[in-house]
Design a protein around this nucleic acid. Structure first.
Length: 539
RNA sequence: UGCCCGAUGGUGUAACGGUAGCACAUCAGACUCUGGAUCUGUGAGUCUAGGUUCAAAUCCUAGUCGGGCAACCA
């Protein structure tokens, strides 16, 4: 039971808001969503869902110069993909601009806001510093009538950008800088991506957000920790504008090892072509995770396991990987693929069965079976053969017998080498499965005659250290992992040619692989979603 | 050195004054037609110092350490 669940439970018990719960996820449409947003989305929608409430999706579009309508669609797509439904409740903060303006006029009439003509540079001086109180603006005591006139003319476009702002009249001596006459409105002669060219003054977040929440009767306005110091201002707006008493509650944002989460840094990676776009499978963006093949259910599970606190934590990506495997293990059909092939020549081909049957998914009896072709020449993983095996090496080695998945057993009789002494093939005899030999390992394989070559992209963590952006004096990009993407040609069961973009398979003993959108008919491209755990290590 | 917030095994969390538990990671074993999965087990924790109390991770005070706040960003 995390603290926000607790607060909501208490509110429900005391009958606050008539026992209703309404939350909202309010992204600014100025970038792509990442797994940190997923934590917020799961919380916002989750709290509503759990309590028979409603969660709104709202574009917090109060700054037209930073925002673009193109982001709105990707945000909607990502939220939907994650598995949440806002129903009718899709809103834009900019749809409330008229109400915000009226409320500002009321504040002016009540002497609680004034038009200030100090430049932002001058204001730096007036505002003061945390340890010292600020000074009052010379424009602080204009009459409501004068302020109202000026504010109306600001809206009418009589003044250039930056010439004037509307400020709340609060307390220039407040130890909380946000309460020292904060800006409510600034002049921005810029068209708005959603509201069009109706406005040239735009409300600031601190003023707009509580109004948006109140208009929508949000009961629990959940946001991240950095807004904690803004809460007194949030409450001030609610109170002084006489609004629905939405309550802001802050929780810690998600940090993950071996990646970066800030929009700025992600943008930097994309713009410098250090990754291939916003949906690069190495990125923690939702579009990247989707492309990598991460199931949304795994992300939801992960977000639940991470929990909600006010402690600034750093979550190990291993937990995300675990959630991904946990889900895929139950759902992904099995197949065999060889990434780094070594030829095996079977010396007794007459003993080979005509075809092999394999289970699609041992974890799911309903998944059925598949037919696997076999021929006298097989491809196995180079790693699965060792000429001089280390202790406890259970795979193929001269004279040793190993099971080959679904088919039978192989006993290595000899090796073939080229002029330079490099291993080129292994010769082996085949023993049918009925023999039930006691062996300690099973290796995967494909029939050389039937295997199809496909492109496989092996992704690894994007950075080499757990906290690439921990040191402020070092560019986080210096910690990029040069081997985060390796593209190879793998040899797969012929069936796999039918894979459609988004299909995920377990390549047995290797990992989970998902067909990329780059896939063409009969030419799928696979992304490694995550490797399987491998407890083998040489002694 | 102003204000706000926080601190529980390696990591993430639970315990609402009454036996510090769970998960991931680690290591060991069992089982297995994936050295996967599954199962079992091991090790490891309440920041410090005072106080309140029969009893403190929990309440109080101080300190230490960490984070946030001085955009006409959100």
């Amino acid at each position: 039971m995390h603290f926000i669940r607790q607060i909501i439970a208490d509110d429900l018990r005391t009958g606050k808001h008539g026992g209703t719960v309404t939350t909202r996820f309010p992204p600014e449409p100025n970038g792509y969503l990442h797994i940190g947003h997923a934590k917020a989305i799961c919380l916002d929608f989750g709290m509503a869902l759990e309590n028979n409430g409603t969660c709104h999706l709202r574009m917090d579009d109060t700054n037209p110069v930073k925002e673009d309508i193109e982001y709105t669609e990707s945000i909607k797509e990502d939220v939907r993909w994650l598995g949440f439904d806002w129903g009718e409740h899709f809103y834009h903060a900019s749809d409330y601009f008229e109400q915000m303006y009226d409320l500002a006029c009321d504040l002016i009439r009540e002497g609680k806001a004034y038009v200030c003509e100090l430049t932002s540079a001058q204001w730096t001086d007036y505002r003061g510093i945390p340890t010292q109180p600020g000074k009052e603006s010379p424009w602080r005591n204009r009459t409501p009538a004068e302020n109202l006139d000026l504010f109306q003319r600001m809206r009418a476009g009589e003044f250039p950008d930056g010439a004037k702002v509307l400020r709340a009249k609060i307390d220039m001596a407040s130890p909380n800088l946000h309460m020292r006459d904060p800006v409510l409105y600034r002049i921005l002669h810029a068209p708005h991506p959603h509201a069009g060219d109706k406005w040239c003054i735009y409300p600031m977040y601190d003023y707009a957000h509580p109004i948006e929440d109140a208009i929508e009767k949000i009961t629990h306005s959940l946001c991240t920790l950095e807004f904690e110091v803004h809460r007194p201002l949030y409450d001030w707006v609610i109170q002084n504008c006489h609004l629905f008493p939405s309550r802001q509650i802050e929780f810690a944002r998600l940090s993950l090892t071996y990646t970066v989460m800030s929009k700025r840094k992600l943008l930097e990676l994309v713009q410098n072509n250090l990754v291939n776009g916003w949906d690069d499978p190495r990125l923690p963006t939702l579009s990247g995770l989707r492309r990598r093949g991460v199931p949304p259910a795994a992300i939801r599970d992960f977000c639940e396991r991470v929990g909600i606190t006010k402690y600034d934590s750093l979550t190990d990506v291993a937990l995300l990987d675990h959630c991904i495997r946990d889900h895929l293990n139950r759902t992904a059909p099995r197949t065999m693929a060889v990434l780094d092939p070594l030829r095996v020549i079977i010396e007794n081909p007459a003993d080979l069965p005509p075809a092999i049957t394999g289970t699609r998914n041992p974890e799911d009896p309903d998944a059925g079976e598949r037919t696997i072709p076999i021929s006298p020449e097989l491809l196995i993983e180079r790693e699965d053969f060792s000429e001089n095996p280390p202790p406890k090496y259970f795979r193929l080695s001269p004279g040793a017998t190993v099971r080959i998945r679904n088919a039978g057993f192989l006993t290595c009789t000899s090796t073939e080498k080229d002029a330079n002494g490099n291993l080129t093939a292994v010769r082996a005899t085949f023993t049918p499965m009925d023999a039930k030999l006691k062996v300690k390992a099973t290796i995967h394989w494909v029939s050389a005659a039937h295997a199809k070559p496909v492109q496989v992209r092996l992704y690894d963590r994007l950075f080499t250290i757990p906290e690439p952006d921990a040191d402020k004096d070092t560019d986080f990009k210096t910690h990029l992992n040069p081997h985060s993407l390796q593209t190879i040609t793998a040899h797969v069961e012929p069936d796999l040619l039918n894979a459609q973009s988004g299909d995920t398979f377990q390549f047995e003993r290797l990992g989970y692989f998902t067909a990329d959108p780059d896939s063409q008919p009969n030419a799928p491209v696979f992304n490694r979603t995550t490797p399987l755990k491998d407890s083998w290590k040489p002694a």
